[in-house]
Computed example of a mutant assay.
Amino acid sequence: MTRKQNLILVGPMGAGKSTIGRQLGEELGMEFVDSDKEIERRTGVDIPLIFELEGEAGFRKRESAMIHELAGTAGTVLATGGGAVLDPENRTVLAARGTVIYLHASIDQLVKRTARDRNRPLLQGGDPRRKLEEIMAVREPLYREVADIAIDTSGRSVRAVVKELLERLEEE
């Protein structure tokens, strides 16, 4: 873990970036920051409202600025939004400023984990499974491209994933 200053979690919504990131930060004595939550805190509104008022493009602009800022600090575990990897400049910044960890899960797990969450604007209306499949078809190669480590979180406890991550980070 000495080669890069931050741990940066990427992956689709529902993969466990926030939950695992928070626990990983505690284990390592590092600050945990969720880029989406930080956007909400600073704007005073939730992500769905930003999407409604500014569209996805407006949100992505805010997200990119937040990632540049947060990835510029040292000693942080940063959970990014699922679409952060869509911007090539974001991928460059993330790869340069931290060890990037791709958390992934099966489509079944993602559907189950996001089923009752109304804070996911891209999943509102229509068939969430089909939407997640479409999202993953585009984003999966980008997650893999930027990742130093990839871990499947499907059907696993937070503790088990964090334990594996700590072991993998020791090997790095």
Rank of each mutant, 00 (worst) to 15 (best):
I20T: 10
I20W: 10
I20H: 12
G21P: 10
Q23R: 15
G25V: 04
F32Q: 10
V33D: 03
D34S: 06
S35P: 05
S35G: 03
D36S: 11
E38A: 14
E40W: 07
R41P: 09
V45R: 15
V45H: 14
D46P: 06
I47T: 02
P48N: 01
F51V: 08
L53P: 08
E54Y: 03
E54V: 00
A57F: 00
G58A: 02
R60V: 03
R60E: 10
R62V: 00
S64C: 03
M66S: 02
I67T: 03
I67C: 04
H68F: 11
L70V: 08
L70D: 10
A71I: 00
A71Q: 00
V77E: 05
V77I: 01
L78P: 07
L78C: 07
T80G: 02
G81S: 08
G82H: 04
G82C: 07
G82W: 01
L86W: 07
D87N: 15
P88E: 13
N90W: 10
V93D: 03
A95V: 01
T99N: 11
I101Q: 05
L103E: 04
L103F: 06
H104V: 07
A105Q: 08
A105Y: 08
A105T: 02
S106F: 03
I107E: 12
I107S: 11
Q109V: 00
Q109P: 04
V111T: 12
R116S: 14
D117N: 13
R118N: 15
Q124I: 06
Q124M: 12
Q124E: 14
G125L: 07
G126F: 01
D127M: 09
K131L: 02
E133T: 08
E133K: 11
V138N: 15
V138M: 15
P141C: 06
L142T: 09
Y143I: 04
E145F: 03
V146G: 04
D148G: 14
D148E: 15
I151F: 13
D152K: 05
R156T: 04
R156E: 04
R156K: 13
R159H: 13
V161S: 10
V162L: 09
